[in-house]
Design a protein around this nucleic acid. Structure first.
Length: 153
DNA sequence: GCCAACGTTGGC
DNA sequence: GCCAACGTTGGC
C-alpha cells in the first residue's frame, strides 16, 4: 500500500509541466524540518498530489510518484544556490530531498477553494488556517475522496 | 501589495 | 529556556 502526500510548488519556479518534461526530478530546496521529516518517511511508489501555489488558481494540478527515497539535498552545499545552508555539511547533511516523476496531469486544477468547501476534507492539513507546510501527508480516504468527487480518477 | 500565521533566530 | 523581533509563506 502506497502512502499519499501533497507537495507544493510555485508553477513559475517548477510546474507540473516542467515535471513532465524533465522526467524524474529532485525535490530540492525544502528548508523546513517538518516537511523534511515527511520526505524522509516517503517510499518509492508513494503517490503525491502536485499542488500549484501562489498562482491563480492555486490547487492540485496533477499526480506524481516517488522514484527515489530521501537523500541529501546537495543544493544545501552549493554556495551559489539560493538554497545554500552553511550549517549543512556532507558529513552531516541537514536537508534531504526525494525524486518524483509525473503520473498524470489532471484535466483541470482541483482548486483550493473547492477543497475548502468540501466538508469531508475539513481535517486536511492543507485547508487548515495558516497552514504553510510545503510537504504533508494525505489520508488514503482523503485521496480517494478527492479523486472520486472530481471524476478525475 | 497586504497581512495573518507561522517558524527561526538570538539576546538575555 | 523564554520570547521579541524578524523573515517567509501564500491566499486574497
Amino acid at each position: 500500500m502506497p502512502q499519499y502526500w501533497l507537495m507544493k510548488s510555485e508553477p513559475d519556479a517548477f510546474s507540473i509541466h516542467d515535471l513532465k518534461q524533465q522526467g524524474p526530478s529532485p525535490w530540492d530546496g525544502v528548508r523546513n524540518y517538518q516537511a523534511r521529516n515527511f520526505m524522509k518517511n516517503m517510499e518509492v511508489g508513494d503517490l503525491v498530489f502536485f499542488y500549484h501555489s501562489s498562482c491563480k488558481p492555486a490547487g492540485i494540478a496533477g499526480i506524481a510518484q516517488v522514484t527515489r527515497r530521501a537523500y541529501p539535498d546537495y543544493t544545501s552545499w552549493d554556495s551559489s544556490s539560493p538554497y545554500y545552508d552553511p550549517k549543512s555539511t556532507k558529513e552531516s547533511p541537514r536537508w534531504f530531498m526525494v525524486d518524483i516523476e509525473l503520473v498524470k496531469i489532471l484535466p483541470s486544477i482541483i482548486t483550493l477553494s473547492r477543497l475548502k468547501q468540501d466538508p469531508a476534507l475539513s481535517d486536511m492539513t492543507l485547508v487548515k488556517k495558516g497552514s504553510r507546510l510545503s510537504v504533508m501527508p494525505v489520508l488514503a480516504s482523503e485521496w480517494q475522496h478527492i479523486l472520486n468527487t472530481t471524476h478525475q480518477a
